[in-house]
């Protein structure tokens, strides 16, 4: 499976249930209620966390395609929830700068994961040790971002 296809599937895997949950909440609650803002706000937070998980997942397995494909895959994870983020801005839940900074955080995470895989591929020749090490570092990166989510949410203004 190509990296772009993996990016599409992982994005659909969170965005489909998230959209189902969001629209069900909106239909059950009054559309004009102040809850709309809260719902979109929650949806954006969930989206960013899911994007980070998705972008790290891309680099768990060895890269098979070209570098252009890798970048396209990261860009796809980044762009996939754009309609939802647009709606959240239109509803007044979030302004453009926090959304941009949040997406920037996802992009940086992707680049870091990409860097880890590329760097260790050159340093460690033994495939077993290399994949183990890359896996451990990516999981550590994921745990760190999860543990300190309040800090970077605060920094981005989310």
């Amino acid at each position: 499976m190509s990296l772009i296809r993996l990016a599409t599937i992982s994005s659909l895997a969170y965005l489909l249930p998230l959209t189902l949950w969001l629209t069900a909440q909106l239909e059950l609650n009054d559309w004009a209620a102040a809850r709309v803002t809260t719902l979109f706000d929650q949806a954006v937070h969930i989206t960013l966390i899911a994007q980070i998980i998705g972008v790290i997942l891309l680099f768990f397995k060895p890269i098979e395609g070209s570098r252009q494909n890798d970048i396209s895959a990261v860009a796809l994870v980044l762009f996939f929830p754009l309609p939802l983020l647009t709606l959240s801005w239109l509803s007044g839940s979030l302004e453009i700068i926090p959304i941009t900074l949040g997406s920037l955080m996802v992009a940086l995470t992707g680049l870091t994961a990409f860097g880890i895989r590329q760097g260790l591929s050159h340093i460690l020749p033994n495939p077993a040790i290399r994949e183990g090490m890359i896996g451990a570092l990516l999981i550590a990166q994921l745990i760190l971002l999860w543990q300190f989510r309040q800090a970077w949410w605060g920094w981005t203004g989310l």
């Binding site: 772009i4 599409t8 252009q68 860009a75 796809l76 762009f79 929830p81 754009l82």
Partner: peptide
């Protein structure tokens, strides 16, 4: 598949 990138932009 890289053309997929255009769809989120167009929808937004």
């Amino acid at each position: 598949p890289a053309l997929l990138l255009a769809l989120p932009l167009l929808t937004a």
